[in-house]
Amino acid sequence: MTVDSEITTHPPRRDAKRATARSKSLGDTAGPIEKAVKAVILTIACALVIVPFVGIVSTSLAPADQVTDAGGFVLFPREIDLTAYRSILSGGVVARALLISIVVTAVGTALSLTLTAMLAWALSRKGTVANKQMLILVLISLLFSPGLIPTYLVVRQFGLIDSLWSLIIPGLVSAFNVIVVRAFFVNLPEELTDAARIDGASEWQIFRRIALPLSKAVLAVIGLFYGVGYWNAFFNALLYLNDASKWPLQMVLRTYVVNGSEMGTAEMGQVVEAAPPQTTIQMAILVISIIPILLVYPFLQRHFAKGMLTGAVKG
């Protein structure tokens, strides 16, 4: 019986060892080439991303004569010169637009998150009045969006022209984000809500004390989507704002960077003896428009893959 077991078990083990040895030998022969190709591709990809960004920051910090001599693009500044930042952040057009963008982004993101979470919670509860009908309306709005002219007429009818609310209200709730948050709420364990109801908790208390704390991960992601959308939006400002003093930062970016309009001393907050080159000012505006998102993203990135329901229900 021992001999039979050896006869039946040893050959497969030997075959497995041979297959493993063969795969290792093939991996050893193909490994260096594949690693070299991957290293080259990753290096090129990183260079395509990093070099332009470094060039933007370096040009915004480079002295005026170096920018002029280099033809408008400096990769390694000779010294750090903050004249461009002092010129545009000391009370001029850029400083005012930056403050408006911060206010619009903060208020819009807070309102959008609140309404999205409340609507998604209502649509995820079976006892909600007209639950299916409301869900169908949300799905229809996801598939069919209103045209530009009807949207403008609605905004004008509500008296939002030349108001900062026109940058917030038209895109206050995203149907896609509602569906995402609703799917998260639907998957919440029923034991949590049932136990809360037995303890006498109302629907609002269940939503505020149970659903919202468990949904920090998905709300962080949705909040980042809303925040980036409000921060980068310029089309609503182009349509609804006739007063240039109410422009957000992205409209200033479009005017003085994309369109190439020159920023004179009247638009700068501080009159300097020698105004920095227009290229330096444009790169400084670009850096200012990028930094807030770069500062916020690391604090929300950890929520992307974090599971908030692990161990929430234990027997």
Rank of each mutant, 00 (worst) to 15 (best):
L26C: 07
S23I: 04
V67I: 14
L142W: 02
A45F: 15
M134V: 14
P248F: 00
I44C: 03
G229D: 02
V129D: 15
S87F: 13
V67R: 02
T20G: 14
A284D: 14
A266D: 15
G31F: 08
F144H: 09
G315A: 12
M283D: 07
N232H: 09
R197E: 15
I288N: 01
G315N: 13
I102N: 11
I41T: 11
V3K: 02
G227E: 14
E267M: 12
A244Y: 00
G269H: 05
K132S: 11
R22F: 15
N259G: 01
G171I: 13
D65K: 08
T109M: 05
A64C: 07
T8Q: 09
I44R: 02
K314W: 01
G31Y: 04
A16H: 13
P248M: 05
N131V: 04
P52M: 10
L167M: 11
D65I: 07
W231V: 00
A237H: 02
S60N: 08
S90C: 07
V74C: 13
E203T: 14
T114H: 03
S25I: 05
L99W: 09
L143K: 04
V272L: 15
K38G: 15
D243N: 04
V181C: 11
A312S: 10
F73H: 07
L115T: 12
K246H: 10
K17P: 10
F185R: 11
L214D: 05
G200H: 03
T68N: 10
G264A: 07
G200L: 10
L309N: 03
L294S: 06
F144T: 12
L135I: 11
V104G: 02
V57Y: 06
Q250P: 06
T310V: 14
A106C: 09
F185W: 14
G311F: 12
Q250F: 03
L253A: 08
L188E: 10
P276L: 03
P63R: 00
T9D: 09
